[in-house]
Simulated scan of single mutants.
Amino acid sequence: MTRMPPAWHDDDRSPNYAHLRAPFAETPFVFDAGALETLCRLTGFRPRGVKILFGLRGCALVDPAEVGAWRNAVRLREARPDHRVPRCVLGVWDRPVGRVIAWPGSTVPNADHMRRQAAAPDRRVANMLAPGMHPYVVGPHAPDGRPVEEGAFQLDRTVEVPVWRSLDAAGYDLACRFDICAPEDNIHAAGWPGDGLEFSSAGCQTLPGRHQPPADPTGDYAAFRRAAGLSPTPDLAETGLAFDYLLVTGRHLQLVAEHWAVPGLARLLPGSSGPEVRLLQDALVSQGRIADWGFTAGVFNGFTAKAVYDWQASRGRTADGVLRPEEAELLGFVLKWPG
């Protein structure tokens, strides 16, 4: 078993970037609510509610003055994700008003937890949540050996989603295990006294700050909760409130923000819904790759993602569970969403 520290693999081997076929770009870019709307159209995401949570994997805020401030637009730049320090952006999109607010954070597991997964390959210890639009509800974060942290955001346990598991702790590439499960990938505070980690995560999405019950949450995490509309002091009455969490890479958002109407950016991935997803599922059912009971018609769930992954692997294509326009044509339909 290798003991090399986690690395971010080349883009053509990355579950996050292989489908984009675009190089790393250090040039800052501007994104606003319009870019998020366009990305949703191109991916068939249909976010519900007023406040939409988002995570941008491999991304950084350019101007410190824009951290934690409601803006019509925010300047970002691409950054290589890291399993030791946070190099992602998390925020809230106020959809009716057309504003966004963002903070630095992490959407990948910490290297310490990856090593624990490598030491127990038969168990589900650590994972990297696949990009997509995922359903979350307000609920407790219950880490082992620590008090329950009420008022966190829980990935809906009734929904099976795709995650990636690295069994050698060397990082995540397309050779890792593509696992369909209901992981406990919450959104919570990053820190805890004495753990020695920049952020504590086995797959959760984290923001700087602490939550040490019975004290209230602190730091950027506390501000994130308030921006989502939650009370500063976690309130059990808010348990079960539903939120959609839009998780994509900074590069994906940059391509959309800078090119807008490019049909080639259309994708089907976890959280997509609509007639195109139904056509995809019909094609997979006809090939015997997905059982009639294994999906909700027109909703791209974990079982649909696994069927796409298996079909891609069988055709010698890049297998990541994300459907591109050219693959839709091979399956007999067209991704018609606007660019």
Rank of each mutant, 00 (worst) to 15 (best):
D156N: 13
A152W: 03
L236R: 15
G191Q: 14
G55C: 00
V30Y: 10
F295A: 07
F45Q: 01
T249Y: 13
P86M: 00
D10R: 12
P121K: 03
V308Q: 03
F300K: 03
H113L: 14
A190G: 08
L53Y: 00
R116G: 09
E276S: 14
P135A: 00
K306P: 04
I187N: 01
D112G: 05
D292E: 12
L335I: 15
H134Q: 03
A102E: 00
D173R: 12
Y172Q: 04
A182F: 10
R116E: 12
L269F: 07
R157A: 10
V334K: 06
W103C: 02
E198I: 01
R124W: 04
T107L: 09
A118T: 02
L284I: 14
T239G: 07
P96M: 12
G209D: 04
L247D: 04
S166Y: 02
A22V: 08
H141M: 12
V85P: 05
V50T: 13
L331N: 00
G132T: 02
P64H: 06
L167Q: 05
F303P: 11
R124G: 08
H211Q: 13
D82Q: 03
K336G: 06
H83K: 00
T2S: 14
N301H: 07
Q154D: 08
V299P: 05
E258I: 05
S314F: 13
D144A: 05
L269T: 04
A22H: 15
Q287P: 15
H9Y: 13
L20Q: 12
L284C: 00
V285G: 02
P23Q: 08
A111S: 11
P6S: 00
E26I: 08
A257F: 02
F300Y: 12
G203V: 06
V108K: 00
A118L: 12
S200I: 02
R13W: 13
G171S: 08
D168N: 11
V161T: 04
F199P: 02
G44C: 01
A111K: 04
A7C: 03
G91E: 03
A190I: 06
V74Q: 09
V159W: 05
A18I: 14
C181E: 14
V92G: 01
G294E: 09
G196I: 11
L323F: 11
A228V: 09
R57N: 11
Q205W: 01
R226L: 04
A223W: 01
V108G: 00
A60G: 08
G132H: 11
A35S: 13
H113S: 10
Y136P: 07
D12Q: 14
A7S: 15
P270R: 02
C88G: 15
A227Y: 06
G240V: 05
P131H: 09
D185N: 13
G91W: 12
E198Y: 11
A7I: 09
E78I: 11
D82H: 05
G44R: 08
